[in-house]
Design a protein around this nucleic acid. Structure first.
Lengths: 232, 232
DNA sequence: CCAAAAGTGTTCAGCTTACACCCATGA
DNA sequence: TCATGGGTGTAAGCTGAACACTTTTGG
């Protein structure tokens, strides 16, 4: 043992686990892997890892996310630290859970090669290892709380999206049908979206205009005391 | 080293730190101690400790709170896990912060004997060791978010309290004067308070009627889809 | 030409906000 | 008797919620 200021304290295992959420085909999906080590080998699991001694928790979570998806700079936030003694039957492990919001894109077969990973619809989740289901439920609760009051929904969509797409996302998050007119009125009244010339014609013959979230406008409005809000 | 499922991972120090908040004399206060070990000995600090291997994070936080205050069963909630590598200059320590809401009572000299502890008004916080100030700010942000939508303010008051006292508490939390008539109307309209016969005459000659929060009514209303809400 | 999705305004109810005076009592 | 804090009601404005028809265009 090196010299230390805390010579009498036990060192313990710390892990991070990532709840990686995406949106595709009108529903929210969760990125799961088959666990590759004991205990619980072969069970469906969140992607996780152990922070190194010279790595912050945030960095470790980002590394884990990158290892699985190859993605960097995506929206990620710490969720909660899980510290029940027997949550991992192998050894006492404190796990700090994070959640990430990802734009899956048109091909939800991405990212599923390396680790036996798959995007699983939230409505059809299998049993998960340890307390991972609790982490997922907490991530969903957080997403539902925050998506009303902060513009984080856009993280789940491509850069350019139509208003019907955005509405479909909110309907998936809140499992509730929304009124088209009220939704458009509310979103557009915040003046945070730039309307583009292009239309998305993948879901109708008429085509729906594409918009882009304007981060600069949002920052300006925030500074003026503005609060994002969507009624659901 | 015992046999383990995770033979290659480093064990690290895990701590818990408690942001203990109280309300007295029309202001919010924070319970601080003088740190008794290096590094940072003698600096103002949150009360903290190390979870034992057979102790959950929640249990450890409650133990730490009890050691300092002798109180048990008070409102406490996990805040956030702090995992920057150098947050503690002595060694890499991941700290899971909790916050507790306490009814200080009439004697704010309580609890201050054993550990060189004191209730410090939030408006006059000294410099705190490590990242403890960040923890305090996060606790306040959490309190401000939750006090509007959940009846947690009552945790900071005695069991019996007057409406002017309750209003004073909300004014301290949000640093904003509230309209007496609107506040009373809103609070009483939720029908969560039982009006008592007694009056509190400590702050006026006329005296203000005392009320008691009715947890059973709140649970019933919750089950019916009711949401607590105070306008601030 | 028609099916299918995009786009558009108005009305009503309920809630939030602003606001001023009387009451009770101990000193 | 008077200073101090406790207690009460109403009107105006705003926001959320409900609701139906026209437009476009590929097949």
């Amino acid at each position: 043992m090196m010299s230390t200021f805390y010579p009498n304290e036990e060192r313990q295992l710390i892990a991070v686990d990532c709840v990686i959420l995406g949106y595709h085909h009108q529903e929210l999906k969760l990125l799961l892997i088959k666990r590759q080590m004991e205990p619980g080998i072969g069970m469906w699991s969140l992607m996780g890892g152990f922070p190194r001694r010279e790595e912050s928790l945030d960095d470790a979570a980002n590394r884990v996310l990158f290892q699985l998806t190859g993605l960097d700079g995506v929206y990620m936030e710490q969720l909660y630290a899980y510290g029940e003694v027997n949550r991992d039957p192998g050894e006492r492990v404190v796990s700090v859970a994070y959640y990430a919001l990802i734009n899956i894109g048109d091909d939800d077969q991405n990212l599923t090669g390396l680790h036996d990973a798959c995007w699983c619809p939230l409505s059809q989740l299998p049993e998960l290892v340890f307390d991972h289901r609790i982490m997922v439920d907490k991530a969903l609760a957080r997403l539902r709380r925050k998506a009303r009051i902060q513009p984080i929904g856009f993280e789940l969509l491509p850069e350019k999206f139509s208003l019907p797409q955005l509405q479909g996302l909110y309907e998936a998050i809140y499992q509730k049908e929304l009124d088209k007119r009220n939704f458009r009125k509310k979103i557009l009244s915040m003046d945070l979206l730039d309307k583009l010339e292009e239309k998305d014609k993948t879901s109708s013959k008429k085509g729906a205009f594409l918009y882009r979230f304007n981060q600069e406008k949002y920052n300006e409005l925030l500074a003026k005391g503005f609060y994002f809000s969507v009624d659901v």
